[in-house]
């Protein structure tokens, strides 16, 4: 049986780890390579680097971070943020990433998903989606770090991503992100039910039981969190212990 995955995310700007709260008030803390190595030790099933650098120079720094991490961490690495073209995807994979996560760029240019999947395989194309409720059981997709409402129906969009060849959806709820009251279960359930590809829950984890709750109440494949792990309020291993005690299959670490 496939194990449910616990994924720590590191937001990186100019080669340093930061963590935004509701995408604003960004704080800077730490070396991403060291943080990734620490998460690996704790039993992270995958590590996500989210590059929030705007500049071109920053992208080169990010690729160096990926290269260094790939020499020390032997679990899958995903890199998101600022990936605009097939060449960006190629460069990122060559640096040692196993997957890329495309977000705003995929909404503006959906063919990026298809081209990426055709050339590199669906398994390395994750589509990150930021969404917000606009009514009961109705959500729309936002881009640019949650700043621009694309007036695009969430369910229509994730179905389209699947058709285009996305290997996975990383679903971030703008409503619950940074609020720490648990994942957005209604949104998560709606997306999981709409597609066959794996869905990663993101945004809102605030306490130990939130992860197990997402797995018990929806069929999501993985759960992602940033600040909770980053500020060492919880370790990945504590989360896995809690899931295991509730009958959820998680990878045991050596």
């Amino acid at each position: 049986m496939l194990a449910k995955r616990i994924i720590p995310c590191l937001d990186v700007r100019d080669g340093k780890v930061v963590k935004g709260v509701n995408f604003e008030g960004i704080k800077e803390v730490g070396d991403p390579v060291e943080c990734a190595a620490e998460y690996d030790k704790q039993g992270a099933d995958e590590i996500v680097f989210y590059d929030i650098t705007a500049s071109h120079e920053g992208r080169g720094v990010m690729l160096d971070v990926v290269r260094e991490t790939a020499k020390r961490v032997f679990v899958p690495l995903t890199v998101g943020g600022g990936i605009k073209t097939v060449d960006d995807i190629r460069e990122t994979l060559r640096a040692g990433a196993d997957k890329v996560s495309v977000n705003s760029q995929a909404v503006q240019n959906p063919s990026l998903i298809r081209e990426g999947a055709d050339i590199f395989g669906s398994q390395c194309i994750c589509v990150g989606v930021d969404a917000k409720a606009i009514g009961p059981d109705k959500w729309t997709v936002f881009i640019n770090g949650g700043r621009i409402d694309m007036k695009l129906d969430l369910i229509d969009w994730v179905k389209k991503c699947e058709q285009l060849g996305a290997g996975e959806i990383c679903l971030n709820s703008i409503d619950t992100d940074g609020v720490r009251g648990g994942f957005d279960l209604p949104m998560l359930k709606a997306v999981v039910d709409a597609v066959k590809i794996p869905v990663i829950a993101s945004g809102g984890a605030g306490k130990l039981g939130d992860f197990a709750e997402a797995f018990l109440k929806t069929d999501c494949s993985a759960a992602l969190a940033a600040s909770l792990f980053h500020f060492r309020e919880l370790t990945v291993s504590q989360v896995k212990e809690d899931c295991k005690s509730k009958g959820i299959i998680v990878r045991q670490c050596r």
Binding site: L2, A3, R5, Q123
Partner: peptide, 10 residues
């Protein structure tokens, strides 16, 4: 079942 078979298995 989801294809590809992707993730950690025992």
């Amino acid at each position: 079942l989801v294809i590809p078979h992707m993730g950690w298995n025992k």
